[in-house]
Write a protein that binds this DNA or RNA. Structure first.
Length: 255
DNA sequence: ATGGTGGGCAGCCCA
């Protein structure tokens, strides 16, 4: 079973790329972030024709998440419990005996900004929720755009990035807090090419220079992590004309 | 150091 995550940065703009990528890769479950479409505008029919059911949690202009799956999706959750948040950044569902939690973690903009404090509060509330989810659902996958590079090896130029948003120590500590619940970054269970990243800024030729960060993650509970057989970043879609600034990440499980 | 690009929606917000 293949489970993927992809920040598409506008589903409207990226729909054709997504459909072609689905046809070429046939993942079983796909978590999308930054769909930027309201639920009424979600392209249900096109995805259904491609063989995918969909759950979505969208808003106008910003954010928005969706889960696509070949098998039925059930038990949707649209928010972190007991955390007031008008931004649509969370979508959880059960599928094929797994619990999938799709996240678009706040970017944080700049260390010490209001958006940064919101990001840290958001991650704390997320940790409380995921602790409970792990009790309810031992087969848990938490994936998406985490907007945090876990370690310096996930950063193209750690010296230049030190202390910045996406790599700052409080953000990394919050991410470690999630992992210490028993969620494994499955990408690091396998040998990977050096300088593996999942996001490259649109500016300054970042992709061409491979000036990226690895901020799109697939975390799996212990019971699932041991069944993970591969995890790779697919740079293909990032090299297309009019690409998203993120590449898809695909994890394979023997289930 | 700044600003470089891209998406959304209407001159600026967000990444």
């Amino acid at each position: 079973m293949q489970i993927a995550t992809w920040n598409v940065n506008s589903l409207r703009v990226r729909l054709v790329q997504l459909l072609e990528w689905l046809a070429a890769n046939s993942p079983d479950i796909v978590a999308l972030q930054e769909t930027k479409v309201t639920d009424g505008d979600f392209p249900v029919a096109q995805l259904e024709a491609a063989g995918y059911r969909a759950l979505f949690n969208g808003q106008k202009s910003y954010n928005g998440v969706a889960i696509l799956a070949r098998a039925p999706l059930s038990e949707p959750a649209l928010a972190i419990p007991d955390f007031e948040d008008p931004q649509r950044r969370v979508l959880a569902a059960s599928c094929d005996g797994l619990r999938i939690v799709n996240l678009y973690v706040p970017n944080g903009q700049e260390v010490a900004s209001d958006k940064y404090e919101y990001k840290l509060r958001w991650l704390r509330a997320l940790q409380v929720w995921l602790r409970a989810e792990l009790v309810r659902y031992p087969r848990l996958v938490v994936l998406g755009d985490f907007n945090v590079a876990p370690e310096d090896r996930d950063v193209h130029d750690p010296a230049a990035w030190i202390g910045s948003v996406l790599v700052s120590e409080p953000e990394r500590a919050a991410l470690r807090g999630l992992m210490e619940l028993g969620l494994n970054d499955v990408f690091r269970r396998f040998e990977q090419p050096p300088q593996s990243y999942s996001w490259w800024d649109y500016r300054a030729g970042s992709f061409r220079r491979n000036n990226g960060l690895r901020i799109d993650l697939v975390l799996a509970s212990a019971a699932l992590a041991e069944r993970c057989t591969a995890c790779r970043i697919d740079r293909g879609p990032r090299s297309l004309e009019r690409a998203s600034d993120h590449a898809p990440v695909v994890a394979s499980f023997e289930i």
